[in-house]
């Protein structure tokens, strides 16, 4: 079966919407689930939970630092507590609180950042979180999750709720292609191999997973066999999956909607260096901020399409030979 036959990549819901729906399901099953938001509930989709369970929804106003600490207080009192905002705000404005009230005492707060990456489009760079995986990963003991589509988000939010420890989940604004079927199982910390390849392996996360599949389809027509691995858990990273890919294809291309200086790529490289060194290339945001435009325009201009990823793959393959 060709890559194109295997993956229809039909447009699904936005991962933020899947997050909101997962919260409602969690809330129905467990009266201990509580949610805080900082005046963005209509955007983060926590308004779905607020409508169903107003007494368990805490409106914090535009005060993210306070919200993170309040969430930590709720979580340290035995609540399954979620705090949500745009990724750029909850991490940047709440970072100190995430460090001292959550990471350091290991409070099992669940932190959700929506509107991640540059795909938010029109709102522009002040709201574009292109360093969130790095910030969240720098918090000791945090688990960092970056789902590829609505199926993964729905499942992983529910996993995270009962996960023993602090968790950050990265979600996006726009509708993204479905990578997974409804029956797919997810385990925090366990990468998913979507395609097996012989010549190179794409390792990716978030909405770039679908673009890697598109890149694999393009390369397939050129006679190149590319694998695709979805790293939905950035930390702790699945070392075995990466080491095996490095050993089996000897060529890895990491693609992410994030600064390549400090994102998934450097984490993968660390594992590759420590296990099976091989040729690597890194596709993502360089040392600059993006700009306003439609999501499609922004993603195209900043080279976040399957065709762009395929270009990076050919560069890697040229070095492999």
């Amino acid at each position: 079966m060709s890559v194109k036959e295997k993956f229809e990549l039909k447009l699904g819901a936005a991962t933020r919407e899947a997050f909101g729906k997962a919260l409602v399901e969690l809330g129905k099953g467990d009266s201990n689930v509580v949610v805080c938001d900082a005046d963005l509930s209509k955007s983060t989709f926590t308004h779905l939970f607020a409508k169903e369970f107003p007494e368990r929804f805490f409106s914090c106003g535009i005060a993210e630092a306070n919200m993170v600490s309040i969430g930590a207080g709720l979580a340290s009192s035995g609540k399954i507590a979620f705090v949500a905002s745009f990724s750029a705000f909850v991490l940047n404005k709440g970072f100190e609180q995430l460090r001292v009230n959550v990471a350091y005492p290991q409070v099992p707060l669940k932190v959700v950042g929506t509107h991640s990456g540059i795909s938010i489009g029109e709102d522009g760079p002040s709201q574009m979180s292109v360093e969130d995986l790095s910030l969240a990963s720098s918090l000791a003991g945090f688990t960092v999750i970056s789902p590829a589509d609505e199926v993964a988000t729905f499942a992983l939010v529910k996993e995270a709720a009962y996960f023993d420890g602090p968790v950050f989940i990265r979600a996006g604004r726009i509708k993204v292609p479905l990578v997974y079927g409804p029956e797919q199982k997810f385990e925090i910390g366990k990468a998913i191999t979507l395609l097996e390849g012989k010549d190179l392996t794409f390792i990716s996360t978030g909405l770039m997973v679908a673009e890697c599949i598109r890149a694999a389809a393009i390369l397939e027509e050129e006679g190149i066999s590319a694998g695709v691995i979805d790293i939905h858990t950035i930390k702790p990273i699945d070392r075995d999956a990466i080491a095996n890919a490095a050993a089996s294809t000897g060529c890895i291309v990491v693609a992410e909607e994030h600064f390549t200086d400090c994102g998934l790529g450097v984490k993968v490289a660390q594992v590759v260096c420590e296990t099976n060194p091989c040729v690597m290339e890194f596709h993502g945001m360089g040392n600059y901020y993006a700009e306003s435009g439609t999501p499609e325009e922004v993603l195209t201009k900043y080279k976040m399409t399957g065709a762009d990823v395929a270009v990076t793959a050919r560069k890697a393959l040229a070095r492999k030979k």
């Binding site: 309040i70 969430g71 930590a72 207080g73 009192s77 507590a81 609180q97």
Partner: peptide, 14 residues
């Protein structure tokens, strides 16, 4: 500067 917010979270849980 962070303790009062943390306390509010505990008070809300109670």
């Amino acid at each position: 500067g962070v303790g009062l917010s943390l306390g509010l979270g505990m008070a809300e849980a109670a």
